[in-house]
């Protein structure tokens, strides 16, 4: 059953999109991520203009994140105070990101910046996660004791002013690092059409040293705020949110997210992380490949108004 999308102005197969939404939603629930980094490239591959894909995808990420955050907050696994501080940076980042994206579109360099960002961020984070989680898996197989976690927090985190207590994360740190982190992720979120969970989660564990239990829920909470704002801005400034497209995706997405969240209980955390790392790495490399392989056609028509 084909459906004509009013904003994207292309005809797509509706059941296929719902199924895709469900598959990405499942992955999102399983790993506690938004899944935007998977969906946006797939949408572009299906022939949806990149501008519309990026904008509509942030809507879909918001939906699956709400679905999972409610489940996490019941388990008291969301640090709302930390989430709000991250989001205050994220909001500014999203506003900057949407304007940067507009500017890049005019320059004709939007797809280049998107490809480079995917290659750099997904490639780097995927490799780090894979390295770390494979190490843990191997040590477990060999029956070695897990490496004692270095609990020494970096000193600079404590030297900064504006300290705030985060009871649920058992932290007493300056709000400057979380705000800067939120800002960076907000910008990337608008440019890459992602929630940014795969950047936030490791950063919260390794830089802010938050307890692993609250990291995923908190990151999803901040993602809801940033992606909701991104959708608003993309719709208001660029008119690129396709409500039919995002609704199709989120029907499958919210259901898949619930199933994924249930399935996640059956796997070990480090095995899940290894699989996620592999997915992140592959997507990053695939997107980056377009920078190096010879193009089919030396010319490219740029989307967005001339």
């Amino acid at each position: 059953m084909d459906l004509y999308l009013p904003i994207a102005e292309v005809s797509v197969n509706a059941p296929l999109l719902v199924a895709l939404g469900a598959a990405v939603g499942f992955i999102s629930g399983l790993f506690g991520i938004g899944g935007g980094f998977l969906m946006t490239p797939v949408l572009v591959f299906l022939g949806i203009p990149p501008t519309v894909a990026v904008a509509s995808e942030s809507n879909h990420v918001a939906a699956s994140s709400v679905s999972s955050v409610i489940a996490y907050s019941r388990r008291r696994a969301v640090d709302f105070r930390m989430g709000a501080v991250l989001a205050s940076g994220g909001v500014v980042g999203a506003i900057i990101g949407v304007e940067v994206f507009r500017f890049l579109l005019l320059l004709g360099q939007a797809d280049l910046v998107v490809s480079v960002s995917y290659l750099l961020f997904l490639g780097a984070i995927g490799s780090l996660m894979l390295w770390e989680s494979l190490g843990t898996v191997l040590r477990r197989r060999r029956g070695e004791m897990p490496k004692p976690r270095r609990d020494r927090r970096p000193m600079w985190l404590y030297a900064l002013p504006l300290k705030v207590r985060f009871p649920r994360s058992r932290l007493y740190i300056s709000i400057i690092p979380p705000i800067v982190l939120g800002l960076g992720v907000g910008i990337l979120s608008a440019i890459m059409g992602i929630g940014g969970g795969f950047i936030l989660v490791p950063a919260m564990i390794y830089i802010l040293r938050m307890p692993a239990g609250v990291v995923v829920g908190t990151s999803l909470f901040q993602i809801i705020i940033t992606t909701s704002l991104t959708s608003m801005l993309q719709a208001g400034r660029n008119q690129t949110v396709d409500i039919v497209l995002s609704t199709l995706l989120l029907i499958g997405g919210v259901l898949g997210a619930q199933l994924g969240a249930r399935a996640s209980a059956r796997f070990r955390a480090e095995e899940l992380r290894a699989i996620l790392a592999l997915i992140v790495l592959l997507v990053g490399l695939r997107m980056g490949l377009s920078l190096f392989i010879n193009p089919d056609d030396p010319f490219v028509i740029l989307s967005g108004a001339g």
């Binding site: 009013p6 809507n59 709400v66 959708s231 719709a235 949110v241 995002s246 609704t247």
Partner: peptide, 30 residues
């Protein structure tokens, strides 16, 4: 046609509606 006009004539309201749909769907599923 209605959606296209909505998106272009009242873009901010359109954005708000799309966000509400997304958040509502997530809540409903949970």
């Amino acid at each position: 046609r209605a959606l296209y006009l909505f998106a272009h004539e009242r873009p901010w309201l359109y954005g708000l509606v799309s966000v509400i749909i997304a958040l509502g769907a997530g809540w409903l599923a949970s």
